[in-house]
Write a protein that binds this DNA or RNA. Structure first.
Lengths: 372, 372
DNA sequence: GTGAAAGCGCTAACAA
DNA sequence: TTGTTAGCGCTTTCAC
């Protein structure tokens, strides 16, 4: 009997032929290396107290046989899949806008990379997925982007005991494990002040009809600011997921009798939309109209004129979200706070710097009654 | 003995308490429903020949217990995970440009949606992932975007017997299961002819230094066309993953002594880059310079002027790729051909329509010697 | 029509 | 230091 034969246990030799689509299993490696399957497992996972020689030998044999451990078996046994869900809200019929805006793209990219660095992979799961898809994949945890109020998916995940970390503070009392967000109020305030300092007297807002936290907080911040400085709010709403509606709303905003002399657009495409609308009305940017929009897109550095943008720093958010989630999964009672606020960045370009200084030296804008 | 007790088999009652993090398992459902686990499995999966009453009853109990089958166990047993890898090439240190361009975003979105409709989910896997991540996830197959020559990941996947479908025809002799691509040569030809008809006399190209098939085929098509019509090639190359390099290359192209009067940019941001460069040199578009770029971005409909774009139809590609892959996974000898070519679309806007007709009535451009 | 039993391939407790 | 064994939770023959 050969050394290998000695370890053929549990079933007959012949029963092991040709399973796993012809791929080698841990038993094959054990047999070929003349050790037990435990030793193989330990050698390959760096566990146990094996002499280096054994470890090396087993690894060599495994390599030679092209052995790849079965992820399914390991998951079943350990209860860990190394898989993280990435949930994105869906809009209308379209699957989801995951990548409609540069924000999501950047965020997802950073998240993927951060997950990978810790040995995890991301599974893309639209929030409105067929339920069977959700339960058909073994997730260790989930990242949720902009969870809506009482999101059923999040609720279900939490009920299952899975950690959930959200990008964007959860609406209502959604019980997430942790969240990462910007301080949208502060961001809007800072930006409005910047516009006011550049000479804006009546700042308009292009906002969404959706009820997500970002839209809501930003709009509220704008309204509060208006109230504080005594400006009548001038804003137009549109369904943010519809790009055409954005162009139309931009037009409407500039067509109003109480036309603003500065506009902040909450969504990525608003910059080009507003620029196009301004051209139609013969408004020069920044001379007649100051422009800022919230975007991660690089196009705004080469538009004519370049447009000032507010960056929400999606890379940092994506990274933070994943770190928090993996910490929770691995039970590291993280040093990181479970609520993390990432600072925003206002990238000032020509569109918000009035060439001629404002007529008054006061930095806060006057109420419209004074200007109009 | 209760009906439920009758079916408590295989181990003692107490040993079943509190496993699976407190979640109900198939045995718990069986016990609660007073049937065997086989019946539960059959009832929930719509198999076997159970009376509707039993099926309904089991489903009710399962619902009440909040039972979710373990994906890991099912995968281990059936050999199917319902997971599809989505591989993207990496550039430099950055994890990957997956979403850097609207193309990938749209393609991934369509792919996700198509996969979902057939009960599969997508796992994002950068091609340069740590090897252990690759083998740690049970994939049924993989979509590869723009596989490079002799891609080691693809080779390994194929060796494992997993179906691989690529977006972009594989370079070299990479043995993919199927591929989907555009006819890049035809697309470039059509576009050059469009420019020529619009009065272009010397068409320049902004291209990449990378060796991927898209860049190579497009550039070759351009060079061939130049040779055919007798125009000296005028092109600048740059590393496509570096957005700054693109702006510089655009500038270089327009700064040349043999400045082209029309330019095609192979990459998404080239349109705005070229537009900005044209402004710097005081060139009016389209009067002094005709512009086309390959892009899926909507910004080009609102630039000044709007820019003509070539769309590669990423949605259709993403959908096709996933359909082919799932057909292969499920062993449906698909009616679909294993090599699918998706037509491109030239979206003609102001930037490529010269307002004044060209001085000659000939549609093909003359060699530079005649014009210069 | 329904149930018992045999694993899927692996890891981890425990033996030796 | 290494091997034996017992499952992880499910699907799937096959027997009744």
């Amino acid at each position: 009997m050969t050394a290998a034969g000695k370890h053929q246990v549990g079933r007959t030799d012949t029963s092991r032929r040709g399973n796993r689509r012809g791929r080698a299993g841990i038993r094959d490696v054990a047999a070929a290396a003349g050790v037990s399957i435990t030793t193989v497992s330990d050698a390959l996972n760096g566990k146990g107290r094996l002499p280096d020689a054994t470890r090396r030998h087993v690894r060599e044999v495994a390599d030679r046989l092209g052995y790849r451990p079965s992820a399914a078996a390991r998951t079943l046994r350990t209860g860990r899949s190394g898989l993280i869900g990435l949930t994105v809200t869906t809009y209308g019929d379209e699957p989801f806008t995951f990548t409609e805006f540069a924000y999501f793209a950047e965020m997802a990219r950073a998240a993927t990379s951060a997950a990978l660095a810790r040995g995890y992979a991301l599974v893309i799961l639209p929030a409105t997925s067929r339920h069977d898809v959700w339960s058909n994949v073994a997730l260790d945890g989930t990242v949720v982007i902009d969870p809506s109020d009482h999101d059923p998916v999040v609720t279900e995940l939490v009920r299952q005991g899975l950690p959930v970390v959200s990008d964007g503070r959860p609406a209502g009392s959604l019980p997430v494990t942790a969240w990462v967000d910007n301080d949208h109020q502060a961001a809007v305030l800072g930006l409005l002040e910047h516009l006011a300092e550049a000479g804006a007297r009546r700042i308009g807002l292009l906002t969404g009809t959706t009820t997500d936290t970002y839209t809501r907080l930003s709009t509220t911040a704008y309204l509060n600011w208006c109230e504080r400085v005594g400006q009548d709010p001038v804003y137009e709403e549109y369904p943010a997921h519809d790009p055409c509606a954005g162009a139309v709303a931009a037009d409407r905003l500039l067509a109003r009798p109480d036309r603003p002399d500065a506009v902040y657009g909450l969504f990525d495409p608003n910059g080009t939309d507003l620029l196009a609308a301004a051209r139609r009305y013969g408004l020069r940017v920044p001379d007649d109209l100051l422009l800022v929009c919230c975007s991660e897109s690089t196009v705004y550095s080469t538009t004519e004129p370049p447009i000032t943008t507010l960056s929400l720093k999606p890379r940092r958010i994506g990274t933070a979200v994943v770190q928090l989630l993996i910490d929770a999964i691995e039970g590291l009672s993280s040093d990181r706070p479970v609520e993390q606020v990432i600072p925003t960045e206002l990238i000032v370009r020509a569109s918000s710097q009035r060439r001629r200084p404002p007529r008054t030296t006061v930095s806060a804008p006057r109420p419209p009654s004074e200007t109009g």
